[in-house]
Design a protein around this nucleic acid. Structure first.
Lengths: 316, 316
DNA sequence: GTGCTCGTGTAGATTCACTACATGGATTTG
DNA sequence: CAAATCCATGTAGTGAATCTACACGAGCAC
C-alpha cells in the first residue's frame, strides 16, 4: 500500500479547487483521469474519499484526512528536491511568481529580470493573478512565490499560516484632475467632489471608503474601476478624485495631479509568501528571487517609478 | 518532477542494504529493476545517486541526501495511512513483528495469539531474526514492531533514535548439571568448573564473561552454543555450567539444575521498538500488539513459563 | 422541458515497469 | 595466472497502468 504521490496530488487538487473538473484543469488532464485516480486512491485507502453533492463532489472525512496528509507528503517531496539543490548550490530551475496586477509590473518584473541576469540557469516566470487565485496556486505548487497585499484598516484575508517576507509599504496617494480646489494636503477638502474608486468588494475600494470616513465624510463615489490605469484615465477626464496606491503611479497621464497629503492617510503592505510546508526560502533559486524582490525594492517609490513622482516627496 | 514514492523506496533500500542486489531481494524484484529505477531517479534528481565501488555501489552525496529525505517521505506516507486507520478506529490489517529467537517463542507468539483473538481483523505475523537483521527490516518497513534485547554490562548496539517500549527484564540464571558443588548462591563457587557460553561475539556470550569477571574469576569456557536449547543440552550432558536468561528456561531438560543466585548478577532488558518516523504506536493495530506485548507479560517469569521455575523464586 | 455543467463509466492507445538474458568489471580460488 | 564467482548494468519483450476520447446520467437554471 504505497499511496503514489501522483494520486495524492490529484486528491490535493480536488480538495483545493473544490471539484474534479477544476482539479483536472489545474493538472492539465481530463476530468475522467482525475475521477479514475480518485477511485483508485479510494480503493487503496479502503474508504471512499469523495461523495457526490449536487452536481459536484465533497470530500468525505477520510478524504479530508488524506488530503491533509497529502499536503504534508507533497511538502516533504518538495523539500527533498530542495535538499539536492541546496547541496549543489545551484541557483537554477524555474521559479514561478504570482502577483497582483500593479505589483507584477512595478516590482516582480524588474526583480525577475535582475534575478535571471544574476543567475544564468534561473528561469523566473511571472503570473499576474488576483490574490485569492495566487494563494490557491501557491498551495497547489503551480506557483512558488506569491506577492500579496494587505490594506491598512481593512480586515482582509489573513495569511497567518504562511511565511511572510515583507517587500514594501505602499501609501495611498490622492489624485485629482488638474485645477481642482485648493492644495491644503487635507483629504476633507474633497468631501464634496465626485469620487472614483475600485469596486466595493475589493480591498482597495474598501480602503478608499475607510479613509474618507476617517477624514469625516462620506465620499460620493460615481465610478468604479478595477484597473488603476482606468482610474487614472477617469481622473484625467475630470470624472472625480481618487485614492490610489503609489505603485499605480508609474505612468501618470496628463491632466492628473498627484496631490501631497499632509500625512499618509492609509496604505498597503506588500509582501511575498512561499509554500508553508514546502521548500520556501531554503531553495537557492527561490531565495535568489526573494532577495531580489525584497532587497533593492524596499522603497518602491525610489526605484520602480522613474519620474513624475517628485510631488510625492512631501508625503514621506 | 514528482519523485515517485516507489522509486524513493528503491533508493532507501539500496542505502539500507548497501547494494543493488540486496535491495532487490528485499523488494522482491530483480537487480535489473532496481538498477533501472535508480537510473530513472537519478535522471529526475539531476545528479547520479550511486557510483560503482569495487563490485558494489556506494551512494554519492546526492544519493545520501535523497535517501535521507526518502525516509522522511516514506514515513509521511505511512502516517497518512495511519491517520485513516485512526479515524476509523479499525484495529485491523497486518502487523509484522520481528524478535530474537528466545523472545519470539516466549513473548511474541502468545502476545500475537492474544491480539488476534481480541481483534478479528488483525493479522499478526512473527518473524524470528537476529537483532541487526530486525533493525534493518524495521527501517525498511518489512517489519512494524521489533523486539530487541540489551544486556547489562555490555555496551551493545544503541537504539537511541527509536521509540522504546519496555516489555520485560530478564535476569540471567545459573544452571549446572545436577549434583555439582554446593549451593551457596554465589557465582564465585563455580570458578574452577568448565563453562558453556554463547558465541563470543554475541551479547549473551559477552554478558557471561562480564558476570564471571565481576565475580572475580576467568571462566574456563569449553563449549560455545548459540541456541539456548543446545546450551541446556550441553549442561544436561555435564559439559559445564552456564548463565542463561530466564526466558530460555521454559523447558528445562532433566539433569539440569537451576540454581538460585543470592542476588541477580546480570540480566537483559527486553523492549519493543517501532519505526521512528513511521506510524509507531499511533496505528491502532500496532498499538494493540504493543499493548499485548507489554501489558500481561510484564513479568515473563510468572506468565510465560508455566512450570519448572519454582527454583527461581529466590532470585527476585 | 431544454440547455448546461459536472462527474463517472468504457474502449483503445500510449507509456511505464518488470523479467529474462547477456555483458563487463572486480574479487576470490585453484 | 587463469578460472570461477559475484555484482551491477544494459537490451528486448511482455504485461500492467494511465491517459484521452466519447458516451451517459444526474442536478440546476431558464
Amino acid at each position: 500500500m504505497d499511496l503514489d504521490v501522483r494520486r495524492l496530488r490529484v486528491l490535493h487538487e480536488v480538495a483545493l479547487r473544490g471539484g474534479v473538473t477544476a482539479a483536472a484543469a489545474a493538472l492539465h488532464v481530463t476530468p475522467s483521469a482525475v475521477s479514475q485516480q480518485l477511485g483508485q486512491l479510494a480503493r487503496e485507502a479502503g474508504h471512499p474519499l469523495v461523495e457526490r453533492s449536487g452536481r459536484g463532489v465533497v470530500l468525505t472525512t477520510a478524504g479530508q484526512i488524506l488530503a491533509l496528509h497529502a499536503e504534508r507528503i507533497l511538502g516533504a517531496v518538495e523539500q527533498a528536491v530542495t535538499g539536492l539543490a541546496v547541496a549543489h548550490r545551484q541557483v537554477a530551475g524555474t521559479v514561478r511568481v504570482g502577483a497582483f496586477p500593479s505589483a507584477a509590473g512595478a516590482l516582480v518584473v524588474p526583480a525577475a529580470a535582475r534575478a535571471m541576469a544574476a543567475h544564468p540557469g534561473l528561469d523566473v516566470r511571472v503570473v499576474e493573478a488576483e490574490d485569492d487565485q495566487s494563494r490557491l496556486d501557491l498551495r497547489s505548487a503551480t506557483l512558488d512565490i506569491v506577492v500579496l497585499q494587505e490594506y491598512d484598516h481593512v480586515p482582509g484575508t489573513t495569511t497567518a499560516e504562511l511565511d511572510r517576507y515583507p517587500i514594501a509599504t505602499d501609501p495611498m496617494h490622492l489624485i485629482t484632475p488638474v485645477g481642482w480646489g485648493r492644495d491644503s494636503g487635507r483629504l476633507a477638502d474633497l468631501a464634496d467632489v465626485p469620487w472614483v474608486a475600485s469596486a466595493a468588494h475589493t480591498p482597495c475600494g474598501r480602503s478608499t471608503l475607510r479613509a474618507c470616513h476617517l477624514a469625516g465624510f462620506e465620499p460620493d463615489i460615481r465610478h468604479r474601476a478595477i484597473d488603476f490605469a482606468l482610474t487614472l484615465d477617469m481622473v484625467a477626464a475630470g470624472l472625480g478624485a481618487a485614492l490610489v496606491p503609489g505603485m499605480a503611479l508609474r505612468h501618470v497621464p496628463p491632466r492628473v495631479l498627484v496631490r501631497p497629503l499632509a500625512k499618509p492617510v492609509t496604505g498597503r503592505r506588500i509582501f511575498a509568501v512561499t509554500r508553508p510546508r514546502g521548500a520556501g526560502p531554503t531553495h537557492p533559486a527561490i531565495a535568489a528571487v526573494l532577495t531580489e524582490l525584497a532587497g533593492p525594492d524596499l522603497d518602491p517609490a525610489q526605484t520602480s517609478r522613474p519620474e513624475s513622482l517628485e510631488l510625492l516627496s512631501a508625503d514621506r
